[in-house]
Nucleic acid binder design. Structure first.
Length: 104
DNA sequence: CTGGTGACCGCTT
DNA sequence: AAAGCGGCCACCA
């Protein structure tokens, strides 16, 4: 039986993030089906079983700023990756008005 | 086995 | 207008 745990639903949503766009935890949680999973989303990415297929670096908090625990090698590195995709960082924040993934 | 925490968000007062 | 609290899942000791 394919019992999709909440984590798989979250991974599925994160994997849908297109190139050059960013998504927020709340957005993913809502798309996953529960607006209160925002916390679970953070934990799901924490285990991040497939970082190569799950662009956790494209996931940012509501303020458009990368999470603190991203220091797995250098938060600066994450910002560079997004910039490399065309995402413009302003004052260490992403313009969610332009780069926030609309869920499509 | 139980308790507590964590990459968060939204609502209430 | 601002601040504080709760809530869901899974893993750890």
């Amino acid at each position: 039986m394919m019992m999709k745990n909440s984590f798989e639903l979250i991974y599925d949503v994160v994997r849908r993030i297109p190139y050059g766009k960013v998504a927020t935890y709340g957005q993913i949680a809502m798309l996953a089906g529960n607006p209160h999973w925002s916390r679970v989303v953070g934990y799901a990415l924490h285990v991040n079983p497939d970082p190569e297929h799950i662009p956790c670096f494209r996931v940012v908090n509501r303020y458009g700023e990368p999470s603190s625990a991203f220091a797995f090698g250098g938060v600066n590195e994450q910002i560079t990756l997004l910039q490399n995709e065309g995402v413009e960082f302003i004052d260490g924040r992403v313009d969610l008005s332009k780069y926030l993934w609309d869920g499509r």
